[in-house]
Design a protein around this nucleic acid. Structure first.
Lengths: 194, 194, 194, 194
DNA sequence: CATGAATGAGAGTTCATTCAT
DNA sequence: GATGAATGAACTCTCATTCAT
């Protein structure tokens, strides 16, 4: 597959991504993607054999971008507590844009496909986030900004709350106020009180 | 609809429930239910017009039962902390039986169908649980068993953690140990320390 | 499947038979049969799941009819040699109608599907024919009409010649004269020459 | 078409031959041949426009080789009966290797394509074989080795038996014993008895 | 009420064939 | 000559939904 092909492959993935954001995972058909890409039926099959394959590649693409984006938004000289707050703010932003998101597609995908740990992007993302938070809290504690007895467990707890907010946003719906309250509650438990 | 009809309706709902536990919501076809019920295609349409309709009725049925079950397991003379622990234990049991559960079906249903608040069973269930927990904590605080500054917010937080665990169980998978850790963390924050 | 269904099933088989005679086995698609039967796509699938299934049932149907037909054409008081001649004449008739025949379809089917002996209709038909011929020759020898040293082997040989003629008819083409010559050659080897 | 082209053409034919032996004629697609040859789709079309064209050229190639091979295996000083036996033995070998053979492909091809006599390789091959056998028998009769009343008709008969065995091998399957019996039966009718 | 045959839309998939490079 | 991306037709198969009985 030459250079041009790679470009087209990329184009398909980006277009498909929009489709998955629109319709979730399970409802997306090869035809949906063909139509969105404005290519021929057979043309799509040159690059991918199923929506599953496409979605997995969309996820990979997605992950790389996400990593990059977050890293680039961290200002220099930020304290641990700053970064943590930044992280939570980022999560909040994600939580509230319920439409332009792959969240539902991702959930639907993993409902259907039980993936081994090593290839489990969502799990890896979750665990990665836990580690980062743990480290941030530890740094904050070291610098006296934060107070915490069990950094790892607290990090885990934060992530589960975020997961809970995320799924709730897609099922019952949540308001910005609700998110604020939760994040505040989390932070308030961490800030060294006097 | 006569007596017999009601019985058959009930039979269909119970059988369909099994199907939804098996296959989630989106993958279930009218044919699946017809086959499971061993009735005729047309027969099913006499009672329900779509899987959506069936699922909604399954949910209603489900909710009534759940309420009854929980109420019946509370022992007399139980303290607030006892009941709270019991509640969490019940949640844990639910979390860990990943297969015989409507969880995935429910999520898939609400991904697809944005339901107004009033009819939103999941939301109602969530909010009901928050209220119960809030009351329990309040009782616990009153009796000196527990310590808590903002009972309502704490109750909300607990429920979001549980939601986070629930969705994680269905996507990345969780172990009993993980659940234990989280629940312990929650309780430890509540128990009046010294 | 009720009475009516059986009738329709039969109708489909008879129509499909025509299609197989027209196009052989491999080229026939479910759509061809759907079109020939003037039923809906899905309608056909109510009765059969593949052309293979249909063809096998056509063959079964065919065989029953063939057996009946031959039996009914044997006149009373016929001598063994008469019946043998009749049999060969019957074969000749089959050989020469190259179009209105399932021959090609049958060959194509068995090229593709290696069937176990017990279900192998063609083999059974072949072996059945060998036995009948053997018996006829034996009777003929007993009555002094025919002469033959090894009835079984002669019967086999006759059947292989007929098979040879049959396939030749469908590949290179044969004339009536060629068939006559072969059958005459066979019979001349059998008639007791004073 | 230059020298190189001829070589490539030859390469394609030889590779395609393997494919036809593997899959018969009808099931072979241009893609199959492209894949087997490891050339580009367009590349194949530079040399051939259809599987039909390819197969016809494979057949031509095949025939030349076959002729050469048989001629080269005849020992000097062989008697007519010897050569005849050798010929039959050769046929037997062909009959029994059911897989590495173009037999099915050839049959399928001629089922589909009614070719005029002059270009009909199979017919020519059949008739050529008849002539050779006729001559051999005539020679054998002349030298007293064999006995036969109508050499031509006997030769034809032999060839039809072989055709019968050939098609039977591909449909119902035959054992070596069956072939031996038939060939023995043929020869025994020829050997001058007493 | 209940049945199940029938329809037709639509998804998946594969290839022959073309054509710009 | 050679490549391989692209197209679109054709097939298989599955269901939601209807309707005569």
């Amino acid at each position: 597959m030459g250079d041009k092909s790679l470009q087209k492959r990329q184009y398909i993935l980006e277009t498909a991504r929009e489709v998955f954001m629109e319709k979730g995972y399970k409802d997306v058909t090869m035809k949906d993607i063909v139509d969105a890409c404005e290519i021929s039926r057979g043309g799509l099959y040159l690059y991918f054999n199923s929506t599953k394959e496409i979605f997995q590649d969309v996820l990979k693409m997605e992950q790389q971008e996400t990593d990059d984006v977050f890293a680039s938004t961290i200002p220099k000289n930020a304290t641990a507590a700053d970064i943590l707050a930044l992280f939570l703010k980022e999560q909040k932003k994600e939580l509230l844009k319920s439409k332009k998101t792959l969240t539902i597609a991702i959930y639907e995908f993993y409902f259907q496909n039980k993936v081994p740990k090593k290839e489990h992007l969502i799990r890896q993302q979750f665990e990665g986030a836990v580690k980062i938070i743990e480290q941030l809290i530890a740094d904050g504690v070291a610098s006296g900004e934060l107070y915490c007895e069990d950094c790892l467990q607290t990090a885990r707890n934060i992530m589960f709350v975020i997961e809970g907010l995320k799924i709730s946003a897609q099922t019952m719906g949540i308001t910005e106020e609700m998110v604020n309250r939760e994040l505040l509650y989390i932070m308030s438990g961490l800030v060294a009180d006097e």
